[in-house]
Design a protein around this nucleic acid. Structure first.
Lengths: 163, 163
DNA sequence: AAAATACTTGACTCATGAGTAATGATTTGA
DNA sequence: TCAAATCATTACTCATGAGTCAAGTATTTT
């Protein structure tokens, strides 16, 4: 699947702020320098995270950003929701009718392809919701070394439709 | 998650061709009229599906499109792969380094956020691969009425990371 | 206070995918 | 054979998200 640049860059900046914790706040220029991104761009991304209540900014001479709540209480889902362009948040089963009044793929009063969208949407949401920022921070110890997580062998058995 | 217009429109056009089977081929104008889309747009979408070997076009007076293989042998994954813009197919763990030579989020020689991308990518691929066009056609009978499919309750248990 | 640092906000430019338009090539049928 | 119908191909326009720019506001330090 396609990962939006906003997601990757935003998450990386957020990880830095999270790692710097211990009451040390990080300024936009600091994060930008470390990540090799422009100050303006980092400012925009962190601003979105701030408005979503994930991090908290403090202006002034010794200002900067700090996590607004514990890393264990921040799910990747809310992070990506915050980073997405304000006009294109996740939506439930968004659908495009075209020029017609109504989709013609209706069987017994239901659109026949809606379940596919629902399924995908649900999977992504559930996956992102189940991972917290703290878990991503503790790499090499937690979920990443778990073969289950990486190639999802067992869970795959349930994802395949029941014959 | 965001469903690309190309996906929805393309799949709908494909479903029509699949339903029309019985040796009846559908022309681009026919499909366009039924779906309420422009002839040019439908032509573009079906052209992509044709190049991917999913449908087969025949020119001339009584030409049109027919499925190139059995509906049961066509997975949604290959359909979406075919419909995607040629330059932006699915990629494995696409990553954006920024201006730096190397991502700085490396813990023990691994990027700490890569597993998240891998996970998402795998889930989507696996889900789409497990559904065939034939199943989408037979609505109201197969997977859609299965509560498991719609809200994924049981499978969710495995998706949540193992404590 | 005043100056320096840093977040905030809104408008702007640019790349990319959505959707259109026009032309060429192939088959059918009269 | 010729014309109509149809797919094939390429170039184009337009909307949207990525990323930039610039001016404004708040806080700290001197």
């Amino acid at each position: 699947m396609k990962i939006a640049p906003t997601w990757e860059y935003g998450l990386r900046c957020l990880l830095q702020i999270a790692r710097a914790q211990e009451e040390k706040s990080l300024s936009i220029p600091q994060v930008a320098r470390e990540e090799g991104l422009s100050v303006a761009y980092v400012g925009k991304l962190l601003n979105r995270l701030g408005k979503a209540g994930i991090i908290q900014g403090r202006r002034g001479r010794r200002g900067g950003y700090v996590l607004a709540k514990d890393a264990a209480a921040i799910s990747l889902y809310e992070v990506f929701q915050a980073l997405a362009d304000p006009l294109s948040r996740f939506e439930d089963c968004q659908s495009y009718p075209g020029a017609l009044q109504e989709c013609i793929h209706m069987v017994q009063n239901t659109c026949s392809i809606l379940p596919v969208w629902r399924r995908l949407d649900l999977l992504v949401k559930r996956t992102l919701s189940s991972v917290t920022l703290q878990e991503v921070l503790k790499e090499g110890t937690a979920y990443e070394q778990n073969r289950e997580w990486v190639n999802g062998q067992n869970s795959a058995a349930l994802l395949v439709k029941q014959a």
